[in-house]
């Protein structure tokens, strides 16, 4: 039986390890320095950071990304960033009321004439969505609808670390340059329809004027948390950014078609429609924290982690007494069980 147990445990561990694979093609997300305060069995959110994260969301992200599952009242609920023990009901919390009233929303209920008015939001209202619907979001964003951020940390492998890595992972501007190419010289998949004998294709190539391409020198791209692999990607090669797209090593995807170089060593990651957003001092923090890109990414990732599971604090704080209780019950049952069986040969 012992062999069976060891074998089973080993193989079970193996199959669980196999399940925890990273999303194909992308660099593995890394934590900020010092890790996340909410990790581990006793980890809790760093509320000042979550508060700053709300500011980053409000001032930067919310212009494109909705958070439909959140209401302003959530900010003032127990465990939320603006919870005030004096106001157990967040609807009465004046600070939350002010945060809500700061945003003008289209009332979800019609007025007495049947029209929908704009009014300041109340704590009971949902977070304002930047676009009326998904089609509007897509039309305004170059065909790619920005995802809703309500549960984004649960919805991505790597969670908050993924958000942090993505936001801070864009290549440094030193690595980015532009070049002018005439399509006749470089045939990118985008300008070649794949049939060399197609006359329309050839004509298009000849008559298309020179285009400005944004190219990334892969040898200058530093992927945080991937120092060991530096040499692997250190080979010279150019990555051509498609128009309106941005390269990010943490985005799931495949860079091979856009890579000029050894296709076996195409850099990790992919392209996304969102460019780098968190430029230094994009927001001004009220508490005097310096708004570096890393700081803002850290804060907003923590805010989004809170938003994805606002009850995480309750979960962990209930977990400990439950575990202690089960431990005590186990010990009591053991003695009870041994006592009952003490006279039985088994």
């Amino acid at each position: 039986m012992k062999a069976f147990r060891i074998l089973a445990a080993g193989l079970a561990g193996l199959s669980f390890a196999a399940m925890a694979h990273a999303e194909g093609g992308a660099a593995h997300p890394h934590e900020p320095e010092g890790g996340w305060p909410f990790e581990g069995a006793f980890g809790q959110f760093d509320l000042p950071s979550v508060q700053r994260g709300y500011q980053v969301y409000r001032e930067v992200c919310s212009s494109c990304h909705s958070m439909k599952l959140l209401s302003y009242r959530n900010l003032g609920e127990q465990g939320g960033p603006f919870f005030d023990p004096e106001y157990p009901n967040p609807n009465n919390n004046p600070y939350v009321k002010a945060l809500a009233a700061d945003v003008e929303i289209l009332s979800p209920t019609p007025n007495e004439f049947g029209d929908y008015d704009f009014r300041p939001a109340t704590p009971a209202d949902q977070f304002k969505s930047p676009f009326a619907n998904e089609n509007a979001a897509r039309a305004a964003n170059n065909g790619a609808a920005p995802p809703d951020l309500s549960v984004i940390v649960k919805a991505r492998h790597g969670g908050a670390s993924y958000i942090y890595s993505l936001l801070t992972g864009y290549p440094h501007e030193d690595a980015i340059s532009t070049r002018e190419v005439t399509p006749a010289v470089v045939t990118t998949p985008a300008s070649d329809n794949g049939t060399p004998d197609d006359p329309t294709d050839d004509i298009a190539e000849v008559t298309t004027p020179a285009v400005i391409q944004t190219v990334i020198d892969v040898s200058k791209v530093h992927i945080a948390g991937h120092d060991a692999a530096e040499g692997e990607h250190g080979e010279a090669g150019l990555l051509i950014q498609p128009a309106g797209q941005y390269y990010n090593p943490f985005m799931a995807g495949d860079t091979t078609p856009q890579y000029e170089g050894d296709p076996r060593h195409a850099p990790p990651g992919g392209f996304l429609s969102m460019g780098p957003q968190l430029l230094p001092d994009r927001v001004t923090y009220a508490d005097g924290t310096e708004a570096t890109p890393e700081q803002m990414a850290h804060d907003v990732a923590q805010f989004l982690a809170w938003a994805s599971e606002p009850k995480q604090t309750n979960r962990k704080s209930l977990g400990l007494p439950v575990m202690i209780y089960l431990g005590i019950l186990t010990i009591l049952l053991w003695f009870s069980y041994k006592r009952v069986w003490r006279k039985i040969e088994h």
Binding site: Y325, L326, L329, L332, L333, R339, V340
Partner: peptide, 14 residues
């Protein structure tokens, strides 16, 4: 026996 009563009480509490 005390141990059985204690076990039962704790289990009921849970």
């Amino acid at each position: 026996n005390f141990i059985h009563i204690a076990t039962g009480a704790v289990a009921f509490g849970g």
